[in-house]
Design a protein around this nucleic acid. Structure first.
Lengths: 105, 105
DNA sequence: CGCACGGTTGGATGGTTGTCAAACAACGAA
DNA sequence: TTCGTTGTTTGACAACCATCCAACCGTGCG
């Protein structure tokens, strides 16, 4: 069950990925997903400091850029990073961003 | 002679760097500077497909994000990547972006 | 001095973005 | 079936952005 559109790994655009990562709220969300592996929208949004509709908006940006996947389970959706796709398309990029984000915060 | 403001390497913000790199025109400019080492504004702007004032605007974004330095010489200005500063602050980031950009184009 | 060259700045404009609030939709539980 | 939980969508809005054109500024050359 995957109603929401996810771009294929070959279609990932570097500039879109970078733009998706260039917002502090989204970067925080990605860092949290990287640390936890898989979280619901609510869990990620928790403590992000924005309204839940805003969080949902950011999740869509991340999803359409190819950074995360959405898996529905019951009445909640689980988000996870597309680490393998990103690594095969842009080797080393996600790791360097994550370690930089970790060092900065 | 350095009239234009360049942020210190410690002050570089990850999200600003990513944001600066997330525009196709700027990414192309950075890739060109990475390949050539040092170029004038005109040389970089050449073939970028935008008006020279737009190119100048993009150079300011890159400069204020800490990605490039400007060195005036005579009546022209030489641009170059701040590779060392970026590497020390965000290890591996620039390289992964550049190789990804190279592979994409 | 005056002029051309290399860039920057200001204004205008059409488009995008981040945010919230409120309404909506899907699903499980009671 | 009715209700609460979980997210999404829509509308509105202010801020920002990429772009062009025109005017400007500093520097070297005649």
């Amino acid at each position: 069950m995957r109603a929401l559109p996810h771009p294929a790994s070959e279609d990932l655009q570097l500039t879109e990925v970078l733009r998706a990562l260039s917002d502090p709220v989204r970067l925080e969300a990605v860092a949290r997903l990287a640390a936890a592996g898989e979280l619901t929208c609510g869990e990620v949004g928790q403590g992000l400091g924005v309204h839940k509709s805003t969080a949902s908006h950011h999740f869509r940006i991340l999803r359409e850029a190819g950074l995360i996947t959405t898996k529905q389970e019951g009445r909640q959706k689980f988000l996870s990073l597309r680490r393998d796709d990103l690594e095969s398309r842009f080797p080393g990029l996600l790791d360097s961003v994550l370690s930089a984000a970790h060092a900065t915060v």
